[in-house]
Design a protein around this nucleic acid. Structure first.
Length: 186
DNA sequence: CAGTGGATGCTCT
DNA sequence: GAGCATCCACTGT
């Protein structure tokens, strides 16, 4: 999957990420949950302009934006466009498929359903840290592959925000048991 | 199950 | 000094 795939608006790209295979150094699985963020909306890190932390978000599409969350976890985003417009997509959950034992070891947990069900869990399972911030998505250690057939997508409000909580910018694979939270009752 | 609170570090006011 | 794009353990049903 070429980095030009991401050179479009977040809410166009985000639903198309559902079902995409994401591997980091060969470990990962199928994306089942994402959230869109864009600079004109106060839920986004880029809403208040460029800073040292969010610099990657202001860079070219098709690159990673990795930041630390609550002092403890890492979270992975894909920078989108069109052009350098400081928008991105948070990868929130995967259905584990490749390197499951390595993910279990990193997470210290057996239950496959909980290995990548949440942005912080996913980064721990895939070994994503701040050193990946700004790296292109179409080169190692990343590997992205589109699904053979598009999947049914469900939509809902984003999770864990105190601002812009009503925007339905969370996308998930319909019926997936590997999402971080159910999409019931918008 | 649902709800609560602590851990923990960095960014921005 | 406040506030997090989170997770886990613990409480009480």
């Amino acid at each position: 999957m070429d980095r030009s795939f991401f050179d479009r608006k977040v809410n166009e790209v985000a639903p198309e990420l559902i079902g995409v295979e994401l591997l980091v150094n060969g470990v990962g699985g199928e994306i089942v949950e994402v959230e869109a963020y864009s600079p004109e909306e106060p839920g986004s890190h880029s809403f208040r302009g460029r800073t040292a932390r969010n610099a990657s978000m202001f860079g070219p599409p098709g690159h990673a934006y990795v930041y630390r969350s609550y002092g403890i976890h890492w979270c992975l985003n894909f920078v989108c466009g069109p052009g350098e417009v400081a928008s991105g997509i948070l990868i929130r959950a995967l259905e584990p498929a490749s390197g499951v034992d390595e993910m279990r070891a990193r997470r210290g947990l057996d239950d496959v359903r909980l290995l990548c069900a949440g942005p912080g869990r996913l980064c721990e399972a895939l070994g994503v840290t701040g050193v990946y911030d700004g790296l292109p998505l179409d080169e190692p250690p990343f590997s992205l592959r589109a699904p053979s057939e598009p999947h049914a997508v469900v939509v809902g409000p984003r999770i864990g925000l105190s601002k812009a909580i009503d925007l339905p910018w969370r996308y998930g694979r319909a019926g997936s048991l590997f999402v971080s939270r159910s999409f019931n009752a918008a």
